[in-house]
Design a protein around this nucleic acid. Structure first.
Length: 873
RNA sequence: GCGGGCGUGGUGGAAUUGGUAGACACAAGGGACUUAAAAUCCCUCGGCCCUAGGCUGUACGGGUUCGAGUCCCGUCGCCCGCACCA
């Protein structure tokens, strides 16, 4: 073996330096070529990159390098989603300043990303905590405020009375604060909101135009926005409620079941519930209990249906002789509709569970198709499917949609206290976006509270409202609140002393427009519209599916809002979206039961005895239990550090392994064997290319006429080229990898048979060039080195993607599988041009077909051109 | 609870979207080379039947079709999301 072993570490560093010195990946806005914007979701600077980043950025880099080779002017930037709670947690735990902690983490992670060899334009890098970035974000906020896209209202938050802080839902565990353990209270705070609900309809309708998004994400967004058509109905109280209300307004999507009404339900957060609780201790306790369940829809829906009769009664809107009891019930959300419902237990599962528990009437009003009106009864399962209305006065015999229409018409004309009793309404589940966070490490909301003028926006020329550096976390609460001077300012309107808003923005705001900022990162306005409109939308966005709803929906809203204030001129920020799967790994546990502890892969050794795997601790030899495969996480210690892998095998091996085998949208299992397989492939390619470079000359001039093995190889490499190009276009990395393995096998075979004639030498050389070019987006360093060895004097990173020769792709014959009664019994190779008749004749002439037919003619003969033949006997 | 997804050899997965199931890779077993190991190369590898060859096989049970891993109905199992984590 003439060639030396491939030294990834040395080679990778060398090419990275060449790329960097030559500014190969720096993008210019005035480049006249067609643009292509590829973006991976930017990372939170936790301090170290993890395998999930490697996978995400490897995929994006393949797209970027491939599109560059295809002649596009590619924008492929990187930045940092740098505000957020972890920096404050670190500040509290380790007494470091959030700013120092964050920028140190960024520096460390930048170096780690650089050794991955990503083709990024680092000149556009920024962090969202850069003063420059959040200055522009404040400017955007003020423009939104000016355009009526922002407002203030009260909203409930989880309040930790010991830490004196607002808690995220995930920080509330069993009703207690995660850090203090104190019982969490619900508090009302005045908070800032973006009017995303103004765009409910538009955000929903435009989902259909996002045809390069995964269906799954589109559906999740549709459900999230949650459009429903229904009726707002006012029920008259038999006696006025203690709030003075004489009617109870509810929203329903099933007005057709109104005659099946059995009781009314109020949310525990409904104003009437609140008022009643003042004089009703039992109800008060119940409401408090409900609030401890948590605010998530899941928790509320799963909880046992419970309620308390308020003693209030309402009149049925269509039959005033019927009075319905009003309950406060734990399964009714205040945020949806009016916070009050009428319940029809026969046709709603939640209502039914409740009715059975409290022995309330269950009157069916929808009759299934084949059921008998006299005997149809609902047991423990509500009937929610189609049917005919019965037991319902003037609605009897109607279909559900017709009954809905009839009820709506009737109630629209009825009046209660001079206003219509019913009103058609389209309701959305989507709520306005609360952006206030009572925290330090975020973008300050640039408004001022003045005793005389109220809430006043900061003047544009006074921006930025900069975070103070001299803060500490030794006391509970928000450091901005207790800073000795930071709050003190003067009112931009009247000039008198006033106080700054101390809330900062949700970090989702930061990530809702960073993609636009990358198009002109130094601009003294939020965007340079010319640059932004030129580059946007992002052609391919890649990231985790965990962002399927919030980040993506907020960004879609933000783009519309930015359009309204003239910062960009488009609605949809991401034309193509791809959500990659997670990186998982086996888990290992030492000990049994409660005493068991997690052990990291680095601490163990695995032995494989005839397929039985056994793990032991490297240090002590103790047996370790091999557990299930889980998402890599610190808590389960099943992480593998990318930098360790890159140190050992190089970035190309890590990238290649992340892209092989598993489809990119699915989870991938990290295994040591898998990495080693990738590593062996790197070495194998290196040997093969070295061998070819030694035994043959670079190609010159036009392709010679070849035949036999040489022609076969040319066909194979051109076919692979065509197929891999399609795979890369579709982000089918695992399929591309498999085809490249196949091509290497083919080239190896041909090369090992000797490169005696010129045709063969040409074919092998061509195949080698193509192989290396196809590999280049995935393993750029190895490809660059091989390209050099093969005698090219340009950079493969700047080389044009080759085009497959159509003539070599066309086969002159086709092999048909021949089925008899749908089962494959043989095959037939025949000219590609053969007519259907010729194929039929040739099929019938086949030995095994003749044998089966025994002289008879087939019942049916199906010929699918270029595909298959089926003989039915 | 509601909504969605997935289920193919020992393993990860291919399958031109209704047309030869198991490409490619990993693991395993056997062999070559080697003083030995590593590396490399060659062979076997869904199950069953003694072979030629055949039967069977894509979670399970039905159906549509000339033909189903792919479409439809039902069952089972696993996974994900559900509004202050980013």
């Amino acid at each position: 073996m003439a060639t030396e072993r491939y030294n990834a570490r040395e080679v990778e560093a060398r090419w990275q330096k060449v790329w960097n010195d030559k500014d190969v990946f720096v993008t210019h806005n005035d480049d006249p070529r067609e643009k292509y914007y590829v973006l991976e979701m930017f990372p939170y600077p936790s301090g170290r990159i993890h395998m999930g980043h490697v996978r995400n950025y490897a995929m994006g880099d393949v797209v970027a390098r491939y599109k560059r080779a295809k002649g596009f002017n590619v924008l492929h930037p990187m930045g940092w989603d740098a505000f957020g709670m972890p920096a404050e947690n670190a500040a509290m735990q380790n007494n470091v300043h959030p700013k120092d902690w964050t920028y140190e983490n960024i520096a460390a992670m930048r170096e780690q990303l650089k050794i991955m060899g990503l083709s990024l334009d680092w000149s556009r890098e920024f962090a969202t905590c850069d003063v420059d970035y959040y200055t522009q974000q404040q400017r955007l906020f003020l423009k939104f405020l000016d355009s009526d896209l922002v407002y203030r209202k009260n909203a409930k938050v989880n309040w930790d009375p010991v830490d004196m802080t607002v808690l995220a839902n995930e920080q509330v565990i069993d009703g207690r604060g995660w850090r203090s353990g104190a019982l969490v209270e619900q508090r009302e705070l005045t908070q800032w909101f973006f009017k995303i609900s103004d765009y409910s309809e538009d955000l929903l309708d435009a989902i259909d135009s996002l045809d390069r998004w995964p269906d799954k994400v589109r559906l999740m967004q549709k459900n999230w926005i949650g459009r429903s058509e229904g009726l707002r109905v006012r029920f008259e109280f038999a006696e006025a409620a203690p709030t003075g209300d004489t009617t109870l307004e509810i929203f329903t999507t099933r007005p057709d079941t109104l005659f099946g009404a059995s009781f009314m339900g109020l949310s525990p957060d409904h104003p009437i519930s609140d008022k009643l609780a003042e004089t009703n201790a039992e109800l008060k306790t119940f409401i408090e209990e409900c609030r401890r369940v948590g605010t998530s829809e899941e928790a509320i829906e799963k909880a046992e249906k419970k309620g308390i009769d308020t003693g209030l009664r309402v009149k049925h809107p269509l039959d005033s002789s019927i009075e319905l009891p009003v309950y406060v019930a734990n399964f009714i959300l205040m945020d949806y509709g009016t916070g009050a419902i009428f319940a029809c237990p026969a046709h709603d599962q939640r209502d039914l569970d409740f009715a059975r528990k409290y022995n309330l009437p269950v009157k069916p009003v929808v009759l299934p198709k084949d059921a008998d009106a006299n005997s149809f009864d609902v047991g423990t399962e509500a009937y929610t499917d189609e049917g005919t209305i019965f037991n319902s006065d003037f609605l009897d015999g109607l279909s559900i949609p017709d009954a809905k229409e009839a009820i709506a018409k009737k109630l629209e004309t009825n009046t209660v206290e001079g206003t219509p009793q019913g009103e058609r309404q389209i309701n959305y589940r989507l709520r306005d976006w609360g952006i206030s966070r009572q925290r330090y490490w975020g973008c300050p909301i640039p408004v001022i509270h003045c005793d005389a003028c109220g809430v006043v926006p900061e003047k544009d020329e006074n921006l930025p409202v900069q975070l103070p550096d001299d803060i500490n976390f030794d006391k509970p609460g928000n450091p901005l609140d207790r800073h000795p001077t930071w709050r003190e300012t003067t009112c931009p309107s009247c000039g008198k002393p006033a106080k700054r808003e101390t809330d900062t923005m949700d970090t989702f705001v930061d990530s809702s427009w960073y993609f636009a900022r990358f198009t002109a990162p130094g601009c003294d306005q939020p965007t340079d519209p010319e640059a932004a409109n030129g580059w946007l939308a992002v052609d391919q966005y890649i990231g985790g599916v965990e962002h399927a709803i919030l980040h993506l929906l907020y960004s879609r809203f933000f783009t519309r809002a930015m359009q309204k204030v003239g910062a960009v001129d488009l609605k949809e920020p991401f034309k193509g979206l791809f959500t990659q799967g997670m990186v998982t790994h086996e888990t290992y546990r030492l000990g049994e039961g409660n005493a068991a502890s997690w052990v990291s892969p680095a601490e163990i050794r695995i032995e494989d005895n005839e397929g039985t795997r056994r793990a032991t601790l490297v240090d002590t030899g103790e047996e370790v239990k091999i557990g299930s495969i889980e998402k890599m996480s610190k808590s389960k210690k099943n992480t593998v550090d990318p930098t360790d892998i890159i140190d050992t095998y190089g970035a190309d091996t890590a990238r290649w392994f992340m892209l092989s085998d598993s489809p990119p949208e699915r989870d991938v299992i990290w295994t040591e064997d898998g990495v080693q397989g990738a590593w062996r492939f790197v070495q194998r390619v290196w040997r093969l290319i070295g061998d070819i470079a030694e035994k043959s000359e670079p190609r010159g001039g036009a392709a010679p006429d070849v035949s036999g093995k040489a022609l076969d190889l040319r066909r194979a490499s051109h076919k692979t080229l065509a197929a891999v190009s399609i795979d890369l276009e579709n982000l089918g990395f695992n399929r591309a990898v498999a085809k490249l393995y196949e091509l290497v096998n083919t080239i190896s075979k041909t090369t090992s048979e000797g490169l005696d004639d010129a045709g063969k030498a040409y074919a092998v050389r061509e195949a080698a060039d193509y192989l290396v070019q196809m590999m280049a987006p995935m393993m750029p360093h190895l490809a660059e080195q091989c390209w050099h060895v093969l005698g090219h004097d340009n950079l493969i990173s700047e080389a044009k993607w080759p085009t497959a020769d159509e003539a070599l792709l066309a086969e002159d014959s086709v092999t048909y599988p021949i089925q008899i009664n749908g089962k494959r019994r043989g095959e037939l190779t025949i000219s590609k041009e053969a007519s259907k008749d010729e194929v039929e004749a040739a099929t019938l002439a086949l030995d095994f077909v003749q044998r089966t037919l025994e002289g008879k003619s087939p019942k049916k003969l199906i010929v699918v051109p270029q595909r298959i033949v089926n003989v039915v006997v």
